[in-house]
């Protein structure tokens, strides 16, 4: 990849200063936009054991235990710097897409926003408790769909009464029972599509302040995808802020009005959906018409002095154009 050349600077590579305006929803605009998630120069580092090279990993492991002070690389622990120095502010009423090639740190960043992964440096501030949409890890394949609805609901922090209340909706939404009484069968008997539908239905049953979605839209058949997109929009209405990780530019375009583009753990662009996606499509070898690089090429990254000055006017206008219907 021609990294340096494609690292273009768009005038809008900074957060939208008038995000509440972009959505055209909620009455929060009265007192100015209300931030719900603030990432302040966040670094996230994974440490991986057992990568010792050279003398065999058993000796490397012994070495590691005996001599704690040596460099981590020599001791067989490798650091993976998954997210580097990322800052952004998300406001109430925004739907923000996270894009980037595989392994660029999107999901990791999302987990850190949810407070599930500790950050190495920096801080993430949130309003209320952001939650990841997804209960897969709490469900058990050997249990019936019905028991999984309860287990998943409880795992997300719902009360038994709340689950009972929404049980029928969850089952209906999943469409599991359209082809017979499948909800009373163990989940291991479901097809992967059916299981995915049930998982999404359980996860989407709860209202969230800040909702984080990790490629949840790509499950199920076409009709279920439509339904789940509608549900996401509904959740978005209730939720303060929505983050969506997806490789489908279409679903990003449909749902989000602002996009963060991560590449190799760094925040490469932050702006209105159309502009960022255009750059991203160029970068990834674009679908339609790869455009020549914009002129503002010299700066590899937005710098603090350039961003605010350049961007306010175009940003607020272009933000409005991408407002969701």
């Amino acid at each position: 990849m021609a990294d340096t050349t494609s690292m273009t600077t768009n005038p809008n590579t900074h957060p939208n200063p008038h995000p509440a305006a972009t959505t055209g929803t909620t009455g929060s605009a009265a007192g100015g936009p209300i931030p719900t998630v603030i990432a302040d120069r966040v670094d996230i580092v994974y440490r991986v054991n057992g990568t010792g090279a050279g003398r065999g990993s058993a000796t490397a492991a012994l070495n590691r235990m005996l001599r704690r002070k040596q460099t981590e690389k020599a001791s067989g622990v490798r650091k993976v710097h998954a997210v580097r120095n990322v800052s952004f502010t998300a406001y109430r009423g925004e739907a923000i897409g996270l894009i980037g090639t595989n392994g660029s740190g999107k999901s990791t960043l999302l987990k850190a926003v949810a407070g599930l992964l500790p950050v190495e440096n920096g801080r993430i501030y949130t309003d209320g408790q952001p939650s990841l949409l997804g209960v897969n890890a709490a469900l058990m394949n050997d249990l019936t769909g019905e028991r999984n609805v309860y287990l998943g609901g409880l795992a997300m922090g719902m009360s038994r009464e709340q689950i009972k209340e929404r049980y029928q909706d969850i089952v209906d939404f999943s469409g599991i029972n359209e082809k017979g009484d499948f909800i009373t069968l163990p989940m291991r008997t479901y097809s992967s599509g059916m299981a995915a539908r049930l998982r999404f239905s359980i996860a989407a049953a709860k209202d969230h302040d800040v909702l984080l979605i990790d490629e949840a839209l790509a499950t199920g058949d076409r009709s279920f995808q439509k339904r789940s997109e509608a549900r996401i929009r509904e959740l978005r209405k209730h939720a303060g802020t929505v983050f969506l990780v997806s490789h489908s530019n279409k679903s990003i375009r449909d749902t989000c009005d602002r996009v963060l583009w991560l590449e190799r753990g760094e925040l490469r662009m932050d702006g209105p959906t159309d502009e960022v996606l255009k750059e991203y499509e160029t970068f990834t070898g674009g679908p339609d018409k790869p455009k020549p690089k914009p002129k503002a090429k010299p700066k590899p990254k937005p710098t603090p002095d350039s961003a605010p000055a350049q961007s306010q006017a175009p940003d607020s206008t272009s933000g409005r154009t991408t407002a969701s219907p």
């Binding site: 590579t13 900074h14 957060p15 200063p17 008038h18 100015g32 936009p33 931030p35 603030i38 120069r41 580097r84 120095n85 990322v86 800052s87 952004f88 502010t89 760094e266 925040l267 932050d270 990254k301 937005p302 710098t303 603090p304 961003a307 605010p308 306010q312």
Partner: peptide, 13 residues
């Protein structure tokens, strides 16, 4: 308001 609220870009804040 927007002046205060903008997020500084990462690297050399």
């Amino acid at each position: 308001m927007s002046q205060v609220l903008h997020t500084p870009p990462p690297t050399t804040a």
